[in-house]
Amino acid sequence: MGKSNSKLKPEVVEELTRKTYFTEKEVQQWYKGFIKDCPSGQLDAAGFQKIYKQFFPFGDPTKFATFVFNVFDENKDGRIEFSEFIQALSVTSRGTLDEKLRWAFKLYDLDNDGYITRNEMLDIVDAIYQMVGNTVELPEEENTPEKRVDRIFAMMDKNADGKLTLQEFQEGSKADPSIVQALSLYDGLV
């Protein structure tokens, strides 16, 4: 993909415009910024974590950033290329609610087996709590990752089998306004 070129080839721009919710001009602008920050044309896990640390200076986002990195890194080569970056950004910032929920499901399904187990969710929720640090005051019933996961599973795990399917996750998330709101945070920002 033209590693350190400051412009993408027209056919690449066209393809990314088809695969995302961005215009050709927006794709070019994002590429310019991506190459400025990642001259090699790729972003590794350490660089990704560094970006998260800028956004969450009062907590430790390392663990959460690693989980997000793994979802962005579609081809699992340990690096995020621009096409992976822009497609994930498109879903998280401008995707439909169902697209965002499928993306979030992939984030929580750490072993990619098609289910979110209690332990997988606990890993992610714990990482989120570490990331936000003491900057967020949580209600008593959610002031630990374990309590939050218990509440989520009580609401979403309809067949009580200890794991969530994509359908259970989507339906449960849509029924909880706070989850829908959290997924909409990026709307309109890009």
Rank of each mutant, 00 (worst) to 15 (best):
P145T: 08
F67P: 09
G47W: 01
K76T: 05
G162H: 03
Y52P: 10
P39H: 00
K163G: 06
I80A: 03
D98N: 06
Q28M: 05
R102Q: 08
M131A: 05
L8M: 14
E141D: 04
D126F: 08
E14W: 12
F58G: 13
A45S: 09
Q87T: 08
D150Q: 04
E81D: 03
A160D: 07
M131T: 13
G95S: 15
T20L: 12
I80D: 11
W103R: 13
G188C: 00
R118C: 00
D113Q: 03
G162K: 08
Q167E: 09
V136G: 08
N143V: 04
S6R: 06
K36E: 09
K53N: 04
A104G: 05
T144L: 09
E24T: 02
L183T: 12
L164F: 11
P61G: 11
E137R: 11
E81M: 14
S90D: 12
E74S: 13
S178I: 01
L89P: 11
K36S: 10
G59M: 01
Q87F: 03
V27Q: 08
T135K: 05
L166A: 14
G2I: 00
K100R: 08
F153T: 00
M131Q: 06
D150F: 10
E146S: 09
F67H: 01
T92C: 10
L138V: 08
V125K: 00
T144A: 12
Y115P: 02
A182Y: 06
E140L: 10
L189F: 11
W103A: 09
M155T: 08
T135P: 05
Y186N: 05
G33F: 03
S83K: 15
K36G: 01
N119R: 12
F22P: 00
K3S: 15
D44R: 14
E171W: 01
K50R: 07
P145I: 14
T135G: 06
K36Y: 11
T23E: 12
F153P: 00
D150R: 09
E146A: 05
R79C: 00
I86S: 07
I35V: 11
F22M: 02
E140V: 00
S40M: 02
I51P: 03
R148S: 02
K50T: 08
I51G: 03
D60R: 09
Q49G: 07
I152M: 09
D77A: 14
G78D: 06
L16A: 15
D126A: 12
F55M: 04
S83M: 12
I116S: 01
M121F: 04
F22C: 13
Q29G: 08
A175V: 10
A154Y: 00
Q170W: 14
K100T: 14
A154N: 05
P145Y: 03
W30V: 01
I80T: 11
Q181D: 04
K9H: 05
G47Q: 11
Q54D: 09
V125T: 11
K19D: 08
F85W: 00
V125D: 07
N134Q: 05
V125L: 09
Q28I: 13
Q42I: 04
K32G: 02
S178Y: 05
V13I: 11
K106A: 14
K50F: 03
K76H: 00
D161Y: 10
G59P: 00
I124T: 06
E26N: 09
A127Q: 08
L189P: 03
N159I: 02
R151V: 12
V136S: 03
D111S: 09
M121R: 02
N143I: 08
E15F: 10
W103H: 02
L189R: 05
L8R: 03
P177S: 13
T92P: 12
D73C: 07
K158D: 01
V91M: 05
F55K: 13
S93T: 03
V91L: 04
G78T: 05
F85M: 12
P145R: 02
D161C: 14
R148K: 04
T17N: 15
T17V: 03
K7E: 06
E120H: 14
N112L: 06
Q49C: 08
N119V: 00
L8A: 10
A160T: 04
K50W: 15
Y31C: 15
S40K: 06
L89Q: 05
L8E: 10
A154W: 03
K50Y: 14
N119I: 07
L122E: 15
L43T: 11
D109G: 03
G162F: 05
Y108E: 12
W103Y: 15
D73N: 13
N143K: 06
V12P: 02
K147H: 01
K158R: 11
F55H: 13
G47K: 11
Q42K: 09
A127G: 07
R102W: 10
S90V: 14
W30A: 00
M156P: 11
P139K: 08
E120I: 11
G162C: 01
G2L: 01
E137K: 11
E81A: 13
N159K: 14
P61A: 03
K25I: 05
Q181G: 12
Y21F: 11
F34A: 06
L8V: 02
I51F: 09
V190E: 02
P10H: 15
F56L: 10
A104R: 04
I35P: 14
A154C: 11
L101P: 03
T20K: 12
Q170T: 04
E15M: 02
L189H: 13
F169P: 02
S83C: 03
K3Q: 13
G95V: 06
Q42R: 09
F169C: 09
N159C: 00
K76F: 13
G33S: 08
A46L: 04
L122P: 10
I51V: 12
T23F: 03
S184T: 05
E146C: 01
E26I: 05
G33V: 10
F55C: 05
S173K: 00
A182Q: 14
L16I: 11
F56Y: 06
N134T: 04
S90M: 00
A46M: 10
K106E: 07
S4G: 08
N75G: 07
L110K: 14
D187A: 15
A127W: 06
S4E: 02
M155R: 12
Y186R: 03
N119F: 08
P61D: 01
C38R: 09
Y115R: 02
Q181S: 05
A127V: 06
Y186C: 10
G188D: 04
P39G: 12
K9P: 04
G41V: 14
Y186D: 00
G133P: 01
K7M: 03
F34R: 03
I128G: 00
I128R: 05
S184P: 08
T96D: 06
G188V: 06
E84C: 10
F34Y: 02
D109S: 05
I51K: 08
D150P: 04
L101Q: 04
R102N: 06
Q167F: 09
R102S: 12
S90T: 12
G114E: 07
R18Q: 12
L16Q: 15
K158N: 06
I35K: 06
D37N: 08
